[in-house]
């Protein structure tokens, strides 16, 4: 329908894919490997939903003009929003793409053809424009590439983890942590929890005593998920400065039993910071993500 809007057509304007392959044999030769070949194999789709013309629109004028981009829907000539319209004709029928129109990618004119190559893809499963998903993402997200160059990182460059394990490039529902506002495009788990918990199963809980910052503000309160100088992917080289930045007595002046009230409790007075063992916070507070037995995450 949207293609029709781009190039109004009648049934007689469709010539069929067999005609297209006369001039485009290189595209057709391996088209049976392409997921879009399903529309041809089906044999039950209407002309506007079959083969080449399902995306490129009716080909009669193109054939009569003996080619030319002005007589056909050429994606290289389309405005980004028209590319999106054309692909969503079929590809909107998936919940994971339900937010594509409001995604940051769409706002930045990053549309389907930016990342997917329909006819020359080296990655047949998702027809990505590059062989490895990470290189596709690094193409724009240079700063993320830099973060994954840090000594400690999730193993994206090694191929164990993919960007889409944590992110939804097609747009995501609002996150359930922070203020439901940022970060954008995080791929929540099926149960709508932070994506970190899909793999880090032991951190999920629930626990009798939860570390509030983990649940309220999210894992990235303490961790730099892409890469860090710290072996635990902490945002600081050592633990105690990270902890003390929050546990500095703001608000409640160190009273126990109150987890917040415009502040987080201060470390107690017997935590002598001149003693190195008190600077290794997680040596005692081993269950820092949550505990079932200790309010102070000791066991």
């Amino acid at each position: 329908m949207l293609v029709s809007a781009i190039l109004p057509a009648f049934a007689a304007d469709y010539v069929g894919s067999d005609v297209c392959k006369t001039c485009h044999p290189d595209v057709w030769a391996n088209f049976y490997r392409n997921p879009h070949f399903k529309s041809v194999a089906s044999g039950k789709e209407s002309p506007e939903n079959t083969g080449c013309e399902s995306c490129h629109g009716p080909g009669k004028a193109h054939v009569e003009a003996r080619g030319g981009k002005a007589t056909i829907v050429a994606f290289s000539q389309l405005a980004p929003d028209k590319v999106l319209d054309a692909c969503l004709r079929c590809h909107s029928k998936t919940l994971s793409r339900a937010n594509i129109r409001r995604s940051s990618h769409t706002e930045q004119d990053v549309v389907c053809s930016t990342c997917h190559s329909i006819h020359k893809s080296p990655a047949p499963k998702f027809l990505l424009a590059k062989a490895e998903q990470r290189d596709l993402c690094y193409g724009c997200h240079t700063s993320v590439r830099a973060q994954f160059s840090m000594p400690f990182k999730h193993r994206v460059n090694e191929g164990t983890i993919k960007c889409t394990d944590c992110h939804n490039p097609h747009g995501a529902f609002d996150p359930t942590s922070k203020m439901a506002e940022r970060p954008h495009m995080m791929e929540q788990s099926e149960g709508n929890e932070q994506p970190c918990l899909k793999c880090h199963i032991d951190k999920r809980g629930p626990f009798v005593y939860e570390h509030g910052s983990v649940r309220v503000e999210g894992c990235d309160t303490c961790h730099s998920a892409h890469g860090s100088m710290n072996a635990r992917l902490l945002r600081r080289p050592v633990t105690f400065t990270l902890c003390l930045e929050c546990h500095n007595g703001v608000g409640q002046q160190g009273s126990f039993g109150v987890k917040f009230n415009n502040g987080v409790q201060r470390t107690p007075s017997d935590h002598n910071m001149a003693d190195p063992r008190y600077r290794n916070c997680t040596s005692c507070h081993v269950r820092i993500h949550g505990s079932n037995t200790s309010e102070f995450f000791f066991r």
Binding site: S143, Q147, T241, E245, N248, N272, M273
Partner: peptide
């Protein structure tokens, strides 16, 4: 080729104890 510079500086107040004295 690519080049990237990531700069971060954070400044926060700390309260902590040394030999029971607040610093």
């Amino acid at each position: 080729a690519s080049y990237s510079k990531l700069h971060l500086n954070t400044l926060g107040g700390l309260d902590f104890f040394v030999f029971n004295q607040l610093n």
